[in-house]
Computed example of a mutant assay.
Amino acid sequence: MRLLDAGKVSSMLEHTITLEEVPSALEKLSQRHVKGKIVAKIK
C-alpha cells in the first residue's frame, strides 16, 4: 500500500461491480474486453 500511495505502482482497476454483476463481468473477461482488474464488492 505504501508503494501505491507513493505513486510508485499503479493499480490496474477497471471496474468495481456488485455481486449480481459477476456473471456478466466474467463473460467480458473471457472475451478479453477488459484491460484492468475487476473487483466485486460483496458487502
Rank of each mutant, 00 (worst) to 15 (best):
G7Y: 07
Q31T: 10
L3K: 12
K28G: 00
T18H: 07
K41Y: 14
K41Q: 13
I17N: 00
L13Y: 06
I17F: 05
E21N: 13
K28I: 05
M1F: 13
K37F: 03
E20F: 08
K8E: 13
I17H: 02
K41P: 01
S30C: 04
L4I: 14
V34P: 00
L4W: 14
M12R: 09
L26M: 14
R32F: 05
L26N: 06
H15F: 14
M1S: 10
K37T: 05
L26P: 13
H33G: 08
V22D: 01
S11Q: 08
L19G: 02
V9H: 02
L19C: 03
A25I: 14
L3P: 00
A25S: 07
V39E: 04
V22Y: 04
E20A: 14
L3Q: 12
A40P: 08
M12I: 13
K28Q: 08
E14D: 06
H15L: 12
L13V: 14
V9G: 02
P23I: 00
I38E: 00
S10T: 15
L29E: 03
M12T: 14
S11V: 09
A6C: 14
K28R: 13
S11G: 14
M12E: 12
K37L: 07
D5I: 11
V39Q: 02
H33L: 11
M12C: 10
P23C: 02
S11N: 14
D5Q: 06
V9E: 03
E27F: 11
A6V: 08
I42E: 02
A25N: 03
A40W: 11
E20S: 12
K41H: 13
L4S: 06
V34D: 04
K28V: 06
M12W: 09
R32W: 04
L13C: 05
H15D: 10
P23D: 01
H33W: 15
P23S: 00
R32Y: 09
M1A: 07
E27R: 10
E27Y: 07
L26T: 01
A6D: 11
I17T: 01
L3A: 07
G7M: 07
K35F: 14
K37V: 03
E27D: 10
H15T: 08
L29V: 09
H15W: 15
L4E: 06
I42Q: 03
V34A: 01
K35G: 10
A40N: 05
A40G: 04
